[in-house]
Design a protein around this nucleic acid. Structure first.
Length: 260
DNA sequence: ATGACGGTGTGGCACCGA
């Protein structure tokens, strides 16, 4: 089973890129973030023609998340239970695999703007809510994958300028403590289970030729629960779509789970 | 550097992202 996350930043603009990518990378599950469209504008039919069903939690202009899957997704939950949120940032669903089900939690984590801002406070509260909800979710769904745009670098390896960006947004101690709290629930960063190229990133700014200079951040993550850990075969970042015309500034991250 | 780039919605720009 292959499962992927891609922050697409307008599915309206980049649906052709998604279809091209799926044709070349026929994953079982693709989690998208920042659809930037309402449910009624979601391209259900086009994706169905490509072999994918969609669980959608859209929003006009901002946010919006979806889980695309080859087999039907069930028990769909939108946003964080117990946390009131006007923004469409989380969708969860159960996907059946040959050897058992997997709970997929797709999140577009709050950006946070800058430490001390109101948006940063929202990010901290949101992360608290996510952790509390996932603690319960793991009890009923021990085989769980949490993936998406976390908007957090885990450590200095995940940033092109660890010194210059110390304690700035995506790099603060507080954000990393929240990431660790998720790990402490019994989740593992699939990417770091394997040897990886140095300076591996999942996002590069559109400006200043950041991609060409590899000035990026690794902020898109795939976390797997303890029960799934023995099944993880690989986790890679696919930088190729960043070379597309009109690319997203994020690229897909793909994990492979063994099927017993 | 209150910048840069790109998408959206509005309306002749502002807002947001990371």
């Amino acid at each position: 089973m292959k499962i992927a996350t891609w922050k697409i930043k307008s599915l309206t603009v980049r649906l052709p890129q998604v279809l091209d990518w799926l044709a070349a990378n026929p994953v079982d599950v693709l989690c998208l973030q920042e659809l930037k469209l309402s449910d009624d504008k979601f391209p259900l039919k086009e994706l169905e023609a490509a072999g994918y069903q969609s669980a959608v939690f859209g929003q006009k202009t901002y946010n919006g998340v979806a889980i695309l899957s080859r087999s039907p997704a069930r028990d769909i939950v939108k946003n964080i239970a117990g946390f009131t949120d006007e923004q469409s940032r989380v969708i969860a669903a159960t996907v059946d695999m040959p050897d058992g089900e997997v709970r997929v939690v797709n999140g577009y984590f709050v950006n946070g703007q800058s430490p001390g801002s109101e948006k940063f406070e929202y990010k901290m509260k949101w992360l608290n809510g996510l952790r509390d909800w996932l603690r319960e979710e793991l009890l009923t769904h021990p085989r769980l994958v949490l993936l998406g745009d976390f908007n957090i670098t885990v450590d200095d390896r995940d940033t092109y300028d660890p010194e210059g960006l110390r304690e700035t947004i995506h790099h603060t101690t507080e954000e990393r403590q929240h990431f660790q709290a998720l790990i402490d629930l019994g989740l593992l960063d699939a990417f770091r289970m394997f040897d990886q190229p140095e300076k591996s990133y999942s996002w590069w700014d559109y400006r200043e030729m950041a991609f060409r200079r590899n000035r990026g951040l690794r902020i898109d993550h795939i976390l797997v629960s303890e029960a799934l850990k023995p099944l993880v075969r690989s986790c890679v970042i696919d930088k190729l779509p960043r070379k597309n015309e009109r690319p997203s500034d994020h690229v897909p991250v793909v994990a492979e789970l063994a099927t017993l």
